[in-house]
Computed example of a mutant assay.
Amino acid sequence: MNVRRRQATIRVHASFHLPGAERPLPEGEYHVVHNEVRCVSDAGAEWRRIASTVYLPAIGMRGPSSRTADISASDLDAALDQDRH
């Protein structure tokens, strides 16, 4: 099984909530690492996201400590979709 890690910076324009978070997270840019697995089928090969980790606090913001939070692909996509509307 082939696994890769992809890094990205996401920009969120409004505060948002992650499952398990005590309170909403502020707008800003967040560093995210996606773990993906390569899936091969008769139709071809594709990379499928199996896990994502967001680094807190947002880039350039100060907080009492830095930490990471695991987030499902669907929860991350929902937060980004909500931010776009």
Score class of each variant (00 low, 15 high):
residue 72 S to C: 08
residue 31 H to Y: 14
residue 81 D to E: 15
residue 54 V to A: 00
residue 23 R to T: 04
residue 24 P to L: 05
residue 70 D to H: 13
residue 51 A to M: 04
residue 39 C to M: 14
residue 15 S to F: 04
residue 54 V to Q: 04
residue 53 T to I: 14
residue 4 R to F: 08
residue 70 D to Q: 14
residue 76 L to T: 07
residue 61 M to G: 00
residue 72 S to A: 05
residue 56 L to W: 03
residue 33 V to L: 04
residue 45 A to G: 03
residue 43 A to L: 12
residue 1 M to K: 11
residue 84 R to K: 11
residue 51 A to V: 04
residue 74 S to V: 07
residue 79 A to I: 05
residue 26 P to C: 11
residue 79 A to S: 06
residue 1 M to Y: 13
residue 25 L to W: 05
residue 35 N to Y: 12
residue 75 D to C: 08
residue 3 V to H: 12
residue 51 A to D: 03
residue 71 I to A: 01
residue 26 P to Y: 09
residue 68 T to W: 03
residue 70 D to A: 15
residue 57 P to A: 00
residue 52 S to P: 04
residue 41 S to W: 10
residue 21 A to T: 08
residue 51 A to R: 07
residue 7 Q to L: 15
residue 18 L to A: 02
residue 17 H to C: 09
residue 25 L to M: 05
residue 67 R to P: 01
residue 65 S to I: 09
residue 73 A to T: 13
residue 38 R to H: 07
residue 85 H to M: 14
residue 36 E to T: 00
residue 84 R to I: 06
residue 26 P to M: 11
residue 55 Y to M: 09
residue 7 Q to S: 14
residue 57 P to E: 04
residue 43 A to S: 06
residue 66 S to R: 12
residue 67 R to M: 10
residue 52 S to D: 03
residue 37 V to W: 01
residue 12 V to H: 02
residue 9 T to L: 12
residue 32 V to S: 05
residue 55 Y to F: 14
residue 84 R to T: 07
residue 48 R to K: 08
residue 11 R to V: 10
residue 74 S to K: 07
residue 35 N to K: 12
residue 70 D to I: 12
residue 44 G to M: 02
residue 75 D to K: 03
residue 7 Q to V: 12
residue 47 W to S: 00
residue 64 P to E: 13
residue 9 T to M: 13
residue 66 S to W: 12
residue 76 L to D: 02
residue 20 G to E: 06
residue 19 P to S: 07
residue 66 S to E: 13
residue 5 R to M: 14
residue 64 P to R: 14
residue 73 A to F: 10
residue 63 G to P: 08
residue 25 L to P: 05
residue 84 R to M: 09
residue 80 L to M: 08
residue 16 F to P: 07
residue 65 S to Q: 08
residue 31 H to I: 12
residue 63 G to V: 05
